[in-house]
Design a protein around this nucleic acid. Structure first.
Lengths: 108, 108
DNA sequence: ACTTACGGTTAGTAAAAACTAACCAAATAA
DNA sequence: TTATTTGGTTAGTTTTTACTAACCGTAAGT
């Protein structure tokens, strides 16, 4: 398939959502698009920190941004969220199946 | 509700799955229950590291263990995985809704 | 009893991640 | 033009995290 050197996958997005501040940012964006300063105003970290967190989220494709004048408005990319959800759903189904089929037969 | 001081939530489980080694362990366990040494044998980290990772996964309830003699067999707790999936699903739905309803009205 | 296999815990170290402060650039307002 | 707002970037520090090595306990085998 030869995807790029480090095309972000569901796993990378999971890591991005692992940080509590980034989760807070992400949940805010789930309510609707917001500017950087707006987000920073509601969190106990500096605007710079928020900007860096948004970069991480952006790198894995979970959010996109669009500049409106001097402001930068970020929004969630729902399709990427769905991918992470589906990744977990597959693991969940697999775990369910493998627990049912080999009950009490660890690693046979 | 007064849940304990640090009852693990979906968000905490997300953080636990943020580490690549833990994700590898978790995906192995999705195939079926395995012992600590067995897992360590297939990963480029020490048995001690695996033990510590399993502790993290165990603390957030994503896995459980059961000692069989001198071995300790870990398995996935599917219900907890489903909770994380549902957490993401709610965020996804919310994001979808809020993008549709207020198009081009950032933070109004 | 001794030995081996298995795994949790601790101490200490190394690596990664998050944060603030300072700076710079671009767009708007005056 | 000059000042203000907004936000990205960098440098440097602090904090957190992951890791190995060494140790200890327990269960089973001999």
């Amino acid at each position: 398939m030869s995807r790029g050197p480090s095309m972000p996958e569901a796993a990378d997005r999971m890591a991005a959502l692992g940080d509590p501040v980034r989760r807070a940012i992400f949940e805010m964006l789930a309510e609707g698009p917001r500017s950087v300063g707006d987000i920073a105003g509601k969190l106990p970290v500096s605007r710079s920190a928020v900007s860096q967190h948004l970069r991480v989220l952006s790198d894995v494709g979970l959010v996109t941004h669009e500049s409106a004048g001097t402001r930068n408005v970020y929004r969630i990319e729902p399709a990427r969220v769905a991918e992470v959800r589906d990744y977990l759903d597959r693991l969940w189904q697999k775990a369910l199946f493998n627990l049912k089929s080999r009950i009490e037969k660890p690693h046979q």
